[in-house]
Every structure is written in structure tokens, then in C-alpha cells.
Design a protein around this nucleic acid. Structure first.
Length: 427
RNA sequence: GCCGGGGUGGGGUAGUUGGUUAUCCUACGGGACUGUGGAUCCCGCGACUCGGGUUCGAAUCUCGGCCCCGGCCCCA
């Protein structure tokens, strides 16, 4: 019987994992320099955690099941809700702001395609209990920092504030449900569908015109002034706009200018409330969004206190795709530094002894225990990109020596057993 | 869930107007070389995605499943 890997999942081989680990370590390092601490939540959670407030879209894509106790559980489709739950369960009384990051896989039952898998990894941060818009600026600047650290350049960071459009809709007396529907269509970017929906909800021509103008607003700081004129008679919108302006100013203090103000971004998940942002890499094709985030009020919805929180996550697999695409990969570390080669079976014990000494010094060492011929061992060592081979043979051992071969130059010399640690001090 | 393109040894491929034993490269194992790698030569290993149909005969035609790729929907 031939058992296949489930659809939409992947096996990662040695080099894949080396590359992924490098990217993971890079992000981890950046997050930690901003004072974020790692957390880990379960792979599955109570189904309600996700169905409650993540919006309709996501519930159809959830892997859910009942365990033997009849509990309705779900493989997590995202990590923001689990982190909010963790906060409410464990961290409510900690001093604020709380900065945390996570790295883990999520699951969605969807049709796989480029940049989309059924098991995928997210790496992101949540900043709970900070002040808006300062924490939003930090999060955005930090995500840009991550991308720069990875050597990526071809990304665009789009920033918007849902409060501007929500303010207009509130002012026009549009219900929460209708608003959500409208926001979903804006997120899609379907102008015609937006027009017909605005019509369907009997929204006045004047308001419709404002909305259609807003969703197309894209640019730099000048957008703020232009938008101010358009929404001048709506206080909530003006307030949201002012907040966005402040965010941009702070962002520039962080040293980041390469942003795009985009009032047309809405985010798929319903729990976002204020500032939202998305990062695109157009070369990726259809699944070009590598990150998204914003400010949300999940914690309140789950029965926690009234706490501002902002978060974002990288689609880790898409990030990997970018790194590959841009040729930004770093050199992969070698598998072993040294291979110890017993010339015959008689030297096997001695070879093991030498290998163990090296390993205890932290040197990546392989020792051949299969009784291969020296020729094969050298070939294998070459394949593993070992820097040195230590040949342990009867001739040398008679004088308490071994032969050490530098695999790059091909040079070799005799060494006393006692000198081996000294020889490798430089490694 | 929908549309389109695919699936041949471990990896990459040739072959598809149906017709002997399915091509080549590479990787791997062994040998030429009894203690010296990345070279050469020889030998070996190993595949038609799965199931049904048409046929004297199917990798090749046909139907369906599975999986992969690109796109839609949706999303990271």
C-alpha cells in the first residue's frame, strides 16, 4: 500500500529546514530586539474560539472534530484568537504593555495553490495594552525591519484605518451587519459589486460617491489632506484620519517612510477595528500578501477587559517563497565539520573515542561505523561538505598519531592524538 | 466548491498516428584501485499515479478517482 501525504501538506527536507530555520532565527532575533517574548499555544482549541468572532468566511475552512469526550475542537486556522484567549486565561493582571511573539502552524481546509497550503506557518506578534497609534507604528516598523533583515526589498506596506469608512457608514445610519457586508466587498476590491450593494442598502448618492472615492485613495502623506476635505463633515472619520496621520508621523520617527496609505484595505477577519495594514510582494502571484495586521478588539469580545491590542503575522511560507525568489538566501551551514574514518575494523573503537571527544567540544562530527572503504568514506565526507577527515589507521596509531586531511586543499598531516583538540580550537 | 494544464526509476527526462525486452542524464550500490574524495571506465539497482473501459495488444485512446501546478472564490 502506498500512503501519500495529505493534500495541501508538505515534507521539508534537510536544506528546506536549514533555510526555514535561518529565516525563523532572523525574525526571532528582530522581535526580541524590540522586547517581544515567545509564547506557544495549543494546536487545537475549543471550536467556539474561532466561530465566535472570526467572521463567516473562516468557519467553513476550519478543520474541526469531536474528541472522545464529545468536545467540539478545531485545529487553529489562525493565531490571533488563541493568543487573545491565552491573554485572558493567563496574563490579564500582568503589567502592560505586553509584547509577545509566536511561531506555529495553522490549518485551513481550502483548495491548495501557489502560496496556499492546508497546513501553513504563521510567525507574528501581539502587543496588548499599548497606546494607539504608537504601538501600531512600532509593529509596522518592526515588520519592515524584519523584511530588511531578510534582505528583501520588493515589498509594499499598505496602511489604512477602518474607522474612516466606518465613520461615514455610521453617519449614514447603516447597520452593523450591512457595514460588515460592505467592508467584505471593499476588501475584495470589487468596485461594481460595491456599487450595487450600496444601491441595495439604499445609501444616498452623496454617501456612495464619498465611499467610492475613499476606497480608491492611495498614496503617501498627501492622502491625509485630500481625505480630510472629503470627510470634513464627519467627526468620527476625521478622528480616525487624525489617528492615521499621527501613526504616519511616528512611523517616520521610527525611520520608515516607504509606506503606502491605502484606505481601500479592509481585512478579511471581522474583528479588526482601527488601523489595519497589509504587506504585498507582487512577484508572488495570486497569493501576494505576506503579512497582515492591525488593531482589534477581540479581547473584549471574549470577555476580557477593555484593552487595546495590535498584532500582525507573517505568512511564513510565503516569506520563504520571497526569500527564494529574491535570491536572498544565505549560505547554508554544513552538515558536519569533521568525519572520522577508521581504516579498518580494528580502529573502530579508537575512531569512536576520537569522535566523542570532538562532539563534546561542540564540533559537528560524523564517524563511519559501517566498515566502508576509505575511498567511500572520503566520498561521503565530500558529500557532507566536511572540512576535515581524520584517518585512524594502524600505521599512525603505533605512534599514537592520526592523519588529518583538509578536504578543501587536500593537504594532510600527522597529528598526535593529544594535539587534536588544539588543532580544532579555531573551528 | 469551480475553470484550465499536468502525473514515466530517488531527482530530471525521451517515447504518446496503440505493436517485441521503455530512452538518456543524474543519484545510489558494487568493482577496476588490498589506506586517500570531487576524474574515468565497467557492472548492478530502479519507473509508465490508481481503478474501470475499448482492443488480439494500452505509457499511448476513453471514463472516473487521487495527487501536483496555475487561476477563481476566499485567505496567510
Amino acid at each position: 500500500m502506498d500512503i501519500q501525504r495529505p493534500r495541501g501538506t508538505r515534507d521539508f527536507l534537510f536544506d528546506d529546514m536549514k533555510e526555514r530555520k535561518q529565516v525563523e532565527d532572523t525574525l526571532r532575533k528582530v522581535f526580541e530586539t524590540y522586547g517581544y517574548q515567545e509564547i506557544k499555544t495549543p494546536l487545537f482549541e475549543d471550536l467556539n474560539l474561532f466561530t465566535m468572532k472570526s467572521g463567516e468566511g473562516i468557519t467553513e475552512q476550519i478543520y474541526h472534530f469531536q474528541d472522545k469526550g464529545g468536545r467540539d475542537l478545531a485545529l487553529r486556522p489562525e493565531l490571533t484568537a488563541p493568543v487573545a484567549r491565552l491573554y485572558i486565561n493567563e496574563l490579564q493582571k500582568r503589567p502592560k504593555p505586553l509584547k509577545m511573539y509566536y511561531f506555529g502552524s495553522c490549518f485551513r481546509y481550502e483548495r491548495p495553490q501557489k502560496g496556499r497550503w492546508r497546513q501553513f506557518w504563521q510567525m507574528g506578534c501581539e502587543l496588548i495594552g499599548g497606546r494607539s497609534p504608537d504601538c501600531e507604528a512600532e509593529i509596522i516598523a518592526m515588520s519592515a525591519h524584519c523584511l530588511e533583515e531578510l534582505g528583501l526589498e520588493n515589498f509594499e506596506i499598505h496602511i489604512g484605518n477602518l474607522g474612516i469608512i466606518r465613520g461615514i457608514l455610521d453617519g449614514a445610519g447603516v447597520s452593523k451587519e450591512e457595514q460588515d457586508e460592505i467592508m467584505a466587498i471593499i476588501d475584495k476590491g470589487e468596485i461594481n459589486e460595491l456599487k450595487s450593494t450600496l444601491n441595495k442598502f439604499n445609501i444616498s448618492d452623496k454617501i456612495s460617491k464619498i465611499l467610492l472615492t475613499l476606497v480608491n485613495m492611495q498614496g503617501h502623506q498627501e492622502i491625509i489632506e485630500e481625505t480630510k476635505k472629503i470627510v470634513s463633515d464627519n467627526e468620527d472619520s476625521l478622528k480616525a484620519l487624525q489617528e492615521l496621520k499621527e501613526l504616519l508621523d511616528i512611523l517616520e520617527a521610527f525611520g520608515f517612510y516607504k509606506y503606502t496609505v491605502n484606505l481601500g484595505i479592509a481585512r478579511g477577519l471581522d474583528y479588526y477595528s482601527g488601523v489595519v495594514f497589509e504587506i504585498y510582494v507582487h512577484d508572488l502571484g495570486a497569493q501576494k500578501q505576506i503579512s497582515g495586521g492591525g488593531t482589534y478588539n477581540l479581547i473584549e469580545l471574549f470577555g476580557g477587559g477593555e484593552v487595546e491590542s495590535t498584532g500582525f503575522a507573517f505568512g511564513f511560507d510565503r516569506l520563504m517563497e520571497c526569500v527564494r525568489l529574491c535570491g536572498a538566501e544565505k549560505e547554508l551551514p554544513n552538515t558536519v565539520d569533521v568525519v572520522v574514518a577508521p581504516i579498518s575494523n580494528d580502529e573502530k573503537f579508537k575512531a569512536i573515542e576520537i569522535a566523542q571527544k570532538l562532539r563534546k567540544e561542540g564540533i559537528k562530527t560524523d564517524v563511519d561505523l559501517t566498515g566502508k572503504k576509505l575511498k567511500k568514506i572520503l566520498s561521503q565526507a565530500d558529500n557532507l561538505q566536511a572540512e576535515y577527515v581524520i584517518m585512524v589507521g594502524a600505521r599512525e596509531l603505533k605512534e599514537n598519531k592520526i592523519t588529518i586531511k583538509d578536504m578543501k586543499s587536500g593537504n594532510q598531516e600527522l597529528l598526535l592524538l593529544s594535539q587534536i583538540p588544539i588543532y580544532f580550537e579555531k573551528l
